[in-house]
Amino acid sequence: MGDSSHNGPIIELRSVSKRFGPLRVLDQINLSLNLGQTTVVIGESGTGKSVLLKHIVGLLRPDSGEVFFHGKRIDRRSEQELVEIRRHIGFLFQMGALFDSMSVAENIGFPVLEHTKCTQEELDRIIAEKLRMVGLEGLQSRRPSELSGGQRKRVALARAIALDPEVVLYDEPTTGLDPVRADVINELILKLKRELQVTSIVVTHDMASAFKVADRIVMLHKGKFIADGSPEWYKTSDDTDVRRFVDGRAAPQDLEALNVQIEDLTK
């Protein structure tokens, strides 16, 4: 798969900036991902983690900066030229983004049918296998509207990995799952990395998951990476922003805001 002649990072972002109107979401971001490495991106809600992922598959284009896949620049390519790259990248959307006019099986089989010529039996086998991997065997004929939020997410994950991509971008894979299911997904991420050398980015708020799957954790804050290190480093770091996020403690100014409101109410 891909381009074997290139030995550098699989994916590289060079000073990527993005703004929506006056809102500066990404500010000169640099990031490179090496083969088989799992990078976890953490950061508070609304900092631009999903926006970051969308730049990697060309769903969003940077205002300035460059995006490389296997050493080739992709951020200026047309949609048609991106097809070849996108089939090697699996994207799990934060909300799942399942096609609600299709059954679970059709959803998972969709990328396979679009990009390969395979028989019905092979297709059924792939669908069953991916469903088993996410712990949902036998749900082939259900509609997305008949699934729970967590089930939908897992079907979306099965669809993202249906073509055995070399890169998988997970946008909050464990959000909305019970702790046991969440751990099954962690194991799945590890298994894909171990067995298929999948390179991945995991966006998450779930620190247990982050510590379990990460080779490297980067923290996005106000458009920049403010921390970059191994899981061990995060466990011991004494940077206030990092500690607060990792330990899940509210910032003093947020608490103050709450106090003011409550005082107003009791007056």
Binding site: L59, R86, F93
Partner: peptide, 9 residues
């Protein structure tokens, strides 16, 4: 976006 991300126009 999901369609596009799967390389389908």
């Amino acid at each position: 976006d999901a369609l596009r991300s799967m390389g389908v126009n």
